[in-house]
Computed example of a mutant assay.
Amino acid sequence: MNGKSRLGEFLRTRRSQLSPDEAEVPTYGERRRVPGLRREELALLAGVSASYYARLEQGHSMNASPEVLDAIARALRLDESERLHLLDLARSAKPRGRGRRPAPERVTEATGQLLDTLADVPAIVVGRRSDVLAWNRLGHAVFAGHLDPGAPDLPSQRPNMARLVFLDAHTRELYAHWPSKARAVVGNLRMVAGQYPEDSALHALVGELSAKSEEFATMWADHRVKACSVADYEMRHPLVGTLTVTQQTLNLGPGPNIVVATTKAGSPSRTTLALLAQATAEVTAPATRVAPATPATAPSRPETHVSDS
């Protein structure tokens, strides 16, 4: 699917999800054959002509100004992440020269030092496609204790958190409210796909997950966009039982991010996490190595192999 198609599909899907009542558009009791707003209604709300908006949805007008796109975003009731995603899609839809391949992802020395410093906090380093590039001992124990601790060091075996969430039974059971976690993963991938429209490996990952998981395909078609910044999750850990963690993504600028899982001070979850740390303390933890620059794309793995949060 090219940039024009992605932009048009996003606009059509979000328009169909916005009811006249939500948009405060009077219907005068008429029966409507389609859900959501009509094109002309959305155009009126955005302050553009119906014909112009129709051309934009159909991919025939690729020169919408930021001001027009912001007006459409307001009419569609988009939040900030969704608005930025709309701008990304509009940029990718414009004709341009051959795009450059995204730079290979690697764990820098500084990031490795930070991961070591967070020894008492579950932490993993994830790439834009949710590949796990590194983790500390507790990060491995909390998120993927059933996998080889050294897996992130081998590009061919590197876990991928999106695959884990949708294709790995252990990870599905780990989240008490799995649909919430699954929607966050899909929403984040949607956002990244808009930022990196030329990333063929990312599109291959989406294709693989769509083919192997009907739930992923359904959520992907919903076009929801969500930045995985902060979220609370109840986790059912096979070693220590239930605990509630706050998963936060620490944005390190261009390049991989660190995802950490914290618990409230004095809470039962803090005690449970301490028990997990004790239970895994004698297990040899993988050293946090700074790997040389390697392609962030690992070959397609069986359903039990994965990568991100």
Results as ranks from 00 to 15, higher is better:
Gly29Arg: 05
Gly29Lys: 10
Gly29Trp: 07
Arg31Lys: 13
Arg31Met: 00
Arg32Ser: 06
Arg32Tyr: 10
Arg33Gly: 04
Arg38Glu: 08
Arg39Asn: 04
Arg39Tyr: 05
Glu40Tyr: 12
Glu41Thr: 11
Glu41Ile: 07
Leu42Ala: 07
Leu42Thr: 11
Ala43Gln: 09
Leu44Lys: 09
Ala46Trp: 02
Ser49Lys: 07
Ser51Lys: 14
Tyr52Phe: 13
Tyr52Leu: 15
Ala54Lys: 05
Ala54Arg: 03
Arg55Met: 10
Leu56Ile: 15
Glu57Phe: 07
Glu57Arg: 04
Gln58Cys: 06
Gln58Thr: 03
Gly59His: 11
Ser61Trp: 10
Asn63Phe: 02
Ala64Cys: 03
Ala64Arg: 01
Ser65Ala: 01
Glu67Lys: 02
Leu69His: 01
Leu69Asp: 02
Asp70Ser: 13
Arg74Thr: 13
Arg74Lys: 13
Arg74Glu: 10
Arg74Val: 11
Arg77Gln: 15
Arg77His: 15
Leu78Ile: 04
Asp79Leu: 03
Asp79His: 08
Glu80Ala: 12
Ser81Asn: 09
Glu82Phe: 00
Glu82Ser: 14
Arg83Gln: 15
Leu84Phe: 02
His85Glu: 04
His85Leu: 01
Asp88Tyr: 08
Ala90Arg: 09
Ser92Ile: 03
Arg96Phe: 09
Gly97Ile: 09
Gly97Arg: 12
Arg98Phe: 12
Arg100Cys: 00
Arg100Glu: 15
Pro102His: 04
Arg106Lys: 08
Val107Leu: 14
Thr108Cys: 04
Thr108Ser: 15
Ala110Asp: 15
Thr111Ala: 14
Thr111Pro: 00
Gln113Trp: 10
Gln113Ser: 11
Leu114Gln: 04
Leu115Glu: 02
Leu118Glu: 08
Ala119Gly: 01
Ala119Cys: 00
Val126Leu: 00
Val126Asn: 03
Arg128Gln: 13
Arg129Ile: 06
Asp131Arg: 01
Asp131Ala: 11
Ala134Pro: 02
Ala134Val: 11
Asn136Cys: 03
Arg137Pro: 06
Leu138Gln: 05
Leu138Ser: 05
Leu138Trp: 05
His140Gly: 07
Ala141His: 05
Ala141Gln: 10
Val142Ile: 09
Val142His: 03
Phe143Leu: 14
Ala144Thr: 11
Ala144Ser: 13
His146Met: 04
Asp148Arg: 08
Asp148Val: 05
Pro149Gly: 09
Pro149Ser: 09
Pro149Val: 09
Pro149Ala: 08
Ala151His: 03
Pro152Phe: 10
Asp153Met: 12
Asp153Thr: 12
Leu154Met: 11
Leu154Thr: 15
Pro155Trp: 05
Pro155His: 14
Ser156Thr: 15
Ser156Pro: 05
Arg158His: 12
Pro159Gln: 00
